[in-house]
């Protein structure tokens, strides 16, 4: 067992290294124009957002539609640190993530007692409240936003933090803690009577999700020079919701694929914002009507699936790996 797992880790590192190397090579040779670079970075940031939201919505089954609020907390906190307090970028990212996690924890504690659609509306409400709070803080520029943020986010930062996010959440899910979260999604009462502190794990999933949304927000702020409260509105949350729903609630690879695909589609439709949103709207409706489990369902796409298919074995469970 130990041996197979090590092989798997080596394989993962190899694939990630190849991906990193080839893109890094393009950048070094100057073959990647700024347009492609922006979208490459956005793909990474969106993957972080989608995967972290999937931990809350897909795996733990706690339907949140205010994820952009945590992104805002990360973005503003980190930007205050670099712009106003002249702190180094790594510290700013960490502080942004921790601040988002703290807010996530504080919001999650009372809210996660609610179920289903009520929870959804409450998270939406909190997302909007966070936005309004930033509008009312003159220190961070009020409604017109905080500008003059140094342009520090690079491809390297995005790549490694995205990889870290995905690996962290994947490892979490495939542990007893992650399974505790999944059991809540499956049947909260059964989970509780099986000895799982459901409140603790719901809040934990919410906090971890908020943490990575905060990190994504920090990267976002330090790429686009300026952040405004309205950047992180309800529609932004919906963007990430669409990614999670399309990819499959409960599939990390699904979220990665959906985030990548939808970022590219958005880039192509940049000048037709309404059409983009109409496509998003139709995606939500059509997926729910015809394939509510999303593209991947709760399955993961990995190299070992190919391996197993080769050996003619049946598909295993989500977390028996």
């Amino acid at each position: 067992m130990q041996k197979i797992l090590n092989k798997r880790i080596i394989l993962t590192i190899l694939v990630l290294g190849l991906l990193y190397g080839s893109i890094q090579n393009l950048i070094v040779q100057g073959k990647l124009n700024p347009y492609y670079e922006i979208n490459l970075l956005l793909i990474g940031i969106n993957i972080m957002m989608a995967v972290s939201l999937n931990l809350i919505n897909g795996f733990t089954g706690q339907f949140s539609i205010g994820h952009a609020g945590f992104m805002a907390v990360g973005a503003y906190t980190s930007a205050v640190l670099t712009v106003k307090l002249q702190q180094p970028f790594p510290l700013a990212i960490l502080a942004g993530s921790l601040a988002a996690a703290l807010i996530g924890f504080l919001i999650g504690l009372p809210t996660l007692r609610l179920k289903g659609d009520y929870l959804a509306i409450a998270t939406l409400g909190f997302g909007e409240i966070i936005k309004v709070v930033f509008v009312n803080i003159e220190y961070v520029g009020g409604a017109s936003g905080l500008s003059g943020i140094p342009h520090i986010t690079t491809w390297n930062w995005v790549f490694f933090l995205t990889a870290f996010t995905v690996v962290f959440i994947k490892n979490f899910i495939n542990s007893t803690h992650g399974r505790a979260c999944i059991s809540i999604r499956e049947d909260e009462i059964a989970a509780e009577t099986m000895g799982i502190n459901t409140t603790k794990y719901k809040v934990m999933a919410f906090t971890i999700g908020a943490f990575f949304a905060g990190a994504a927000g920090a990267l976002y702020a330090h790429y686009f020079y300026i952040i405004q409260p309205n950047t992180f509105n309800f529609l932004k949350s919906i963007d990430y919701l669409v990614m999670v729903v399309l990819g499959g609630m409960g599939s990390i690879t699904g979220s990665v694929l959906a985030a990548t695909a939808l970022t590219i589609i958005s880039a192509l439709l940049q000048r037709f914002a309404e059409i983009r949103m109409v496509i998003y709207a139709l995606l939500l409706i059509v997926i729910m009507l015809f394939r509510p489990q999303g593209l991947m369902g709760n399955k993961e796409f990995s190299l070992s699936i190919l391996e197993r298919l080769g050996r003619g074995e049946k598909h295993g469970s989500v977390s028996s790996k």
Binding site: S183, E186, I189, A190
Partner: peptide
């Protein structure tokens, strides 16, 4: 520990995972 009258399994998970979750504590 208990079972339920109207079976409450973690229905989308594997048989093995159902048992492993109970081992959580």
């Amino acid at each position: 520990a208990r079972t339920f009258q109207n079976i409450r399994l973690f229905s989308n998970l594997s048989v093995l995972d159902n048992v492993r979750i109970a081992y959580h504590t």
